[in-house]
Simulated assay, not measured.
Amino acid sequence: MKKYTTNYINTLIEIAEDCPVSQSQIPPEKKEKTLANLQYEKLAKNPYQYTSDDIIFDCYAIKHDISENEKQQERENFFSKGQPCLRCSPLAKKYGFGIHHNSEEKVALIPVESKEYQSLLNDVSTAKTKAMRSKRK
Results as ranks from 00 to 15, higher is better:
1 M>H: 06
46 N>M: 06
125 S>G: 03
63 K>H: 07
73 Q>H: 09
28 P>G: 01
86 L>F: 07
3 K>Y: 00
39 Q>P: 03
4 Y>I: 08
69 N>K: 15
1 M>G: 11
88 C>I: 00
130 K>E: 12
20 P>I: 04
79 F>C: 08
24 S>K: 04
1 M>K: 05
22 S>L: 09
10 N>Q: 15
127 A>K: 14
123 D>C: 10
96 G>F: 09
42 K>L: 15
76 E>D: 12
74 E>W: 08
121 L>N: 01
102 N>E: 09
115 K>W: 01
6 T>E: 11
57 F>Q: 01
131 A>W: 10
10 N>D: 13
119 S>K: 15
78 F>H: 05
95 Y>V: 07
9 I>P: 00
126 T>E: 09
96 G>L: 05
89 S>A: 09
131 A>Y: 06
2 K>N: 05
134 S>Y: 00
113 E>S: 07
36 A>T: 10
137 K>D: 11
73 Q>S: 12
107 V>S: 02
59 C>I: 07
103 S>R: 14
32 E>M: 08
41 E>L: 09
98 G>E: 10
53 D>K: 00
118 Q>R: 02
98 G>S: 02
123 D>K: 10
124 V>D: 10
100 H>E: 05
133 R>N: 06
16 A>K: 06
88 C>M: 12
129 T>P: 01
19 C>A: 06
93 K>D: 00
37 N>D: 10
116 E>M: 13
62 I>G: 02
6 T>D: 13
7 N>C: 14
95 Y>F: 15
41 E>Y: 11
26 I>G: 05
115 K>L: 08
15 I>E: 01
115 K>Y: 06
57 F>A: 03
68 E>R: 05
51 T>L: 03
4 Y>T: 08
42 K>R: 14
11 T>P: 07
128 K>W: 00
118 Q>D: 12
89 S>G: 04
115 K>C: 06
117 Y>A: 04
71 K>H: 10
3 K>E: 08
1 M>L: 05
66 I>L: 10
28 P>E: 09
105 E>I: 05
72 Q>F: 11
21 V>N: 10
71 K>F: 12
80 S>Y: 09
43 L>I: 08
46 N>K: 06
8 Y>R: 15
67 S>R: 14
53 D>V: 02
44 A>P: 00
60 Y>H: 14
43 L>M: 15
37 N>W: 15
58 D>T: 10
101 H>T: 07
89 S>L: 01
94 K>G: 00
17 E>V: 05
51 T>R: 10
48 Y>D: 13
137 K>Y: 13
112 V>A: 04
88 C>R: 04
82 G>L: 01
52 S>M: 04
15 I>W: 02
86 L>T: 01
56 I>G: 10
124 V>A: 12
53 D>Y: 03
64 H>C: 04
100 H>W: 14
35 L>K: 11
90 P>S: 11
104 E>L: 03
43 L>P: 09
55 I>P: 00
88 C>T: 06
133 R>M: 07
74 E>P: 04
72 Q>E: 15
